[in-house]
Amino acid sequence: MRVSIFSTCLVDLMSPNVGIAMVEVLERLGCEIDYPASQVCCGQPAYNSGYLQDSKLAMQNMMLAFEASDYVVGPSGSCIAMFHEYPKIFKGEPDWELKAIALKEKSYELTQFIVKVLGVTDVGATLEGTATYHRSCHMTRLLGEKETPFQLLEHVQGLKLEPLKNSDNCCGFGGTFAVKMPEISEQMVDEKCGCVMETGADILISADMGCLLNIGGRLSRKGEPVRIMHIAEVLNQRQPVVSKGGSRT
């Protein structure tokens, strides 16, 4: 199965490990990886800030970049949810509407693709530790994907998942919201950090780098020793478990 990787601009700029992990996980599951190099950003920052015309240029670039792809898979519920908005945005534009629908129909967030398209819930990952999972608002509400991250995390050996209180409250990222209304955003992320610390987890996992940069950046500023991991990195962990007999599994 040929899969086009949509790396997202945050991974390109800040978090190469997430992209690498995603590729390694997908290849291990038998996918043939392809990377359309003309891809940039889904257009969400400008779109959500009200700069509609400017955002449409980014969207058009993406529709062209992935035109030949069979499947488009990205490590972000939020960016994929943005792809899913394209048909609404380009409704009635003859050159673009069909391209927008086509992109929507073949785009999946990473965990969604693994569970729903590949039909896999155990990717053979191993990670010792206690973690909590932050569900991103766009992935759960706009993309409508609530279950697949948990289905995969349940099968990660050695990983204990602690529930996160008020998990449906936004972490305060919201793209440009975080920088345009920093005073409010700061209070939101502080409350989220408090809930993360309450779980006692030493790892915070999410499927969206935006939220992780936000919560992780705040935790780091506060000096809290919580490790931040994108779910792709978790699923790519092969840390060996030594059994009683000393053999590696």
Binding site: C41, G43, P45, A46, Y51, D54, N61
Partner: peptide
């Protein structure tokens, strides 16, 4: 800022 960012994020 938004116009500049948009230009950059739409051009490979």
């Amino acid at each position: 800022q938004m116009k500049a960012a948009s230009k950059l994020l739409s051009s490979p």
